[in-house]
């Protein structure tokens, strides 16, 4: 076992432990905070695998943006701050069985397939910013541009979904459309 193996096993244990806490904790806010630990440990794993650029993108987007979005969602759905009951549904035993079967199948296949696979890390590094930038903007530039269009579509979709009903001034905003009186000037 090389030192890299030991460090990676430690990071993997942190990742898995905090992931299990995300799906088992009884407090919604704690789930989001354990998610930060999971994503941070994964970013450290990427650094260990010398995928430097992916690691920092992970920190920026997941820890910086996605978790904040999820915390906003928790806040806006008026979730209780303390412990809340009923976060697990009734099919929890089935879920445990399915997850255990998935884990057994995947681990068996992966271990059988890649038991001998070995890589010497860091010589040369696999993903510095320069290498990744050259790769994205030379080889993968078309999917990159298509992805920017997809982000724009998702942005517009999220705005359309979450905006309030636009109404003329003088009407209260929490009236439902079906209850609204049909006045003149509205087709």
């Amino acid at each position: 076992m090389t030192p890299a193996d030991v460090v990676f096993l430690f990071l993997g244990a942190v990742t898995l432990g905090s992931a299990v806490l995300v799906v088992t904790t009884r407090q919604l806010v704690h789930a989001a905070l354990w998610l930060v630990v999971t994503f941070g440990a994964l970013a450290a794993s990427y650094l260990l695998l010398t995928a430097e650029f992916v690691a920092w993108v992970q920190v920026l987007i997941y820890v910086g943006a996605v978790v904040v979005l999820l915390l906003f969602g928790i806040m806006l759905t008026r979730a209780p701050i303390g412990r809340s009951e009923g976060l697990d549904s009734a099919n929890r035993p089935v879920a445990i069985a399915v997850a255990a079967a998935t884990a057994a199948l995947l681990v068996t296949v992966v271990v059988a397939g890649f038991r001998e696979a070995y890589v010497e890390l860091g010589d040369p590094p696999a993903g510095t910013s320069g290498q990744m930038g050259a790769s994205i903007f030379r080889t993968w530039v078309l999917p990159f541009e298509v992805l920017s269009l997809l982000l724009l579509a998702a942005l517009i979709g999220a705005i359309v979904l979450s905006r309030r009903e636009i109404q003329p001034p003088g009407e209260s905003s929490d009236e439902r459309p079906t209850e609204r009186p049909t006045g003149p000037g509205r087709g």
Binding site: F8, S45, L106
Partner: peptide, 19 residues
């Protein structure tokens, strides 16, 4: 580093997500 370590961690993490 053995590639089987990240592969196994990823498989277990996926199972946790499925659960």
């Amino acid at each position: 580093m053995h590639i089987v370590y990240p592969a196994v961690v990823a498989a277990l993490l996926f199972s946790v997500g499925v659960y």
